[in-house]
Design a protein around this nucleic acid. Structure first.
Lengths: 226, 226
DNA sequence: TGCGGCCGTCAAGGATCCGTCAAGGGTGGC
DNA sequence: GCCACCCTTGACGGATCCTTGACGGCCGCA
């Protein structure tokens, strides 16, 4: 039994959706504005979010951005607007799919099933290849491509990049980085981090002085941004 | 540079797609029937497959099923048919998304990007996320979002916010706050609290002069209200 | 009314942290 | 042995952050 969070401010439509979804075997939670939607998603994570873009308190895009700040739960967007930009914005903000009103209920159900199936797929953390802008990091083959051409890394450089990429999007503390790359007993050698982050940036970033992927969080550690 | 496999039997459309995709930074491979598509996907795995359902040698659904037999590469389906069942069948067979002709090229590009981003995304474990109005505090990743955008905190600011959030709704005495953030021996440096509560309010509150989340209890301490 | 706590605000050093460059020194291949 | 490569370490400028002091508003109390 999968859980779906329905976010819609029209009571009629929300009710109709809830009934149909429950009849199809879903467990349904509803929210009638963005703040409640975010709180509900944080407090009781659903398997998929069905989000109407027209909300009273905040833009649907902000809801997507906020949820994407900590969760990768699939989001299917529902909108009355027929034309282009909306879809592009929502998908780029992190939505997974897009359905335009009026819609066929069985199509909506199929898209929800597809969204849940994708997220349930055992992608189990170690995806072999990570793409970040013009960078491609192949964790299995220990290779890095920049604009399609191979970049040669030293063992230590690779090790540090690997730790960052496997934790992409989240902060890696200086201590954890030092321990994972150099081993226990090196927790205080923060100078190593400065030297090697600079080397990685020189090899991987388009503008090493303003890195887009290997980002410093002063006083805390580093993040690999995709 | 992500790789896309374009499967289409109309030379004109396939050519146009290839040119546009290459201009957008994709590496493009083409196949003009199902057999070649499957062979290409097996021999040289792409990051995403763009599949036209109308193929000369076999049904598009069979291509999806065949590829899904060994790979989870995202598949975006392209079809001229306007109505219902096709979409449902394709999505249930394992496709990830569906675009109907005629389509806007920037929508197609957005869907391809979304598909690749999803497949590169790692699965997320359970995380401690606290939502308070427009604030989202992710304790695991040491991140704070305000209206969906990232807020940068210094280590001391974060440390103080963390103590307050972990005790949300409860009074945290000045003494406890000072000891948790600055360590024992700082129990009397109440001025620190004034400076840092002000800084946090400036960064996090909508109206720093009338804080709704970081509330002072005169003579006692501070509370984080959700 | 005047005074003294308490809290919030602002600003200015000085300490710490970060990025950069470059020079040993160790190791392995030839 | 010689060379190439890589790790470690030092030095330094600049940015960031912590600490500290000064000041004003508010409130209770004499």
């Amino acid at each position: 039994m999968s859980r779906v969070l329905v976010v819609d401010d029209e009571p009629g439509l929300a009710h109709a959706l809830a009934i149909t979804l429950r009849a199809s075997g879903w467990t349904v939670t509803t929210a009638d504005d963005g703040a409640h939607a975010i709180a509900s998603a944080a407090h009781h994570p659903p398997d998929v979010i069905l989000l109407d873009l027209g909300l009273p308190d905040m833009s649907g895009l902000d809801v997507i951005t906020a949820v994407r700040g900590w969760s990768r739960v699939p989001i299917v967007v529902l909108s009355a607007r027929q034309h282009g930009e909306d879809k592009v914005d929502a998908l780029d903000a992190g939505a997974d799919d897009y359905v335009t009103k009026p819609f066929a209920m069985n199509e909506l159900l199929a898209r929800l099933r597809a969204a849940v199936r994708r997220s349930a797929a055992p992608s189990d953390g170690d995806e072999a290849v990570v793409v970040a802008g013009s960078l491609t990091v192949d964790l299995a083959r220990r290779r890095v491509l920049r604009d399609g051409v191979d970049v040669r890394l030293t063992p230590t450089e690779w090790s540090m990049l690997e730790v960052l990429v496997r934790n992409r999007g989240r902060l890696v503390s200086r201590r954890q980085l030092l321990q994972d790359v150099w081993g226990p007993g090196y927790s205080d050698e923060t100078h190593y981090l400065r030297v090697y982050s600079a080397q990685l940036r020189r090899k991987l970033e388009d503008d090493p002085a303003h890195p887009r992927h290997i980002v410093t969080q002063p006083g805390m550690g580093y993040v690999f941004e995709v």
